[in-house]
Write a protein that binds this DNA or RNA. Sequence first.
DNA 1: ATCATGCTTAGCCATGCGGCTAAGTAATGC
DNA 2: GCATTACTTAGCCGCATGGCTAAGCATGAT
Lengths: 113, 113
Amino acid sequence: MAKHDPDLSRLFHALADPTRRAILSRLAEGSARVGDLAAPTGLRLPTVMKHLSVLEEAGLIASAKDGRVRTCALRPESIDAARGWLDAQRAIWEARLDRLEAFVTEDTGKDET
Amino acid sequence: MAKHDPDLSRLFHALADPTRRAILSRLAEGSARVGDLAAPTGLRLPTVMKHLSVLEEAGLIASAKDGRVRTCALRPESIDAARGWLDAQRAIWEARLDRLEAFVTEDTGKDET
DNA sequence: ATCATGCTTAGCCATGCGGCTAAGTAATGC
DNA sequence: GCATTACTTAGCCGCATGGCTAAGCATGAT
């Protein structure tokens, strides 16, 4: 387990934005050009570009420029880091759950504020 | 599939911070008091409190106050939403991968910026 | 009653993020 | 060559985030 894990932070951060998740979903239907990705979002190109940068730096997508057109595609394996962490945590949490059992969890909302 | 999915955004956002992930890891060893959670972070209490709020609003932890002590515990099932989304995406991406195959992905770094 | 403990609230500050416009560059089409 | 297309870069703006200090409040100990 790494101490800092900036990769994981960038990955989760990238996934935390609805627009970016929408872009990913769109890309799941096939690779697309930047303009085509921007259109359905209702956002301006530069804004979408930033989102694409975030996604690319998180390793979630790859892009290549052919002529004046940049095409983006998913990098499916990138999601494994996130899944791996979640699965690991889940496993540990479940294992410990018997000890915690009905501590605060019993009520789902014992004390809010 | 929801349009906005603010829950998913909050969840991923909560997981995007190293300090918060550290707190979750610590909680995986058993429930703990706020002060005990703050100590290893090197951060001040109010700061940690904010992190705990984020985690709680994301549904990742629950807390209850007994006397003047607040105890926090994990909510293992909360992670399922994230896992679910990741798994779904992963599945779709994999399925489509044959079509995309070696489009941009071939090189891992054809054209950066 | 008084004091210490442990969390909580309020408010400040710097940075970062998500949105925009405007202007720039590179490839294609005529 | 010149206009158009399609990104790209630069820079601005408002708000959220993550850190802090200082002060508050409730509980437990003396």
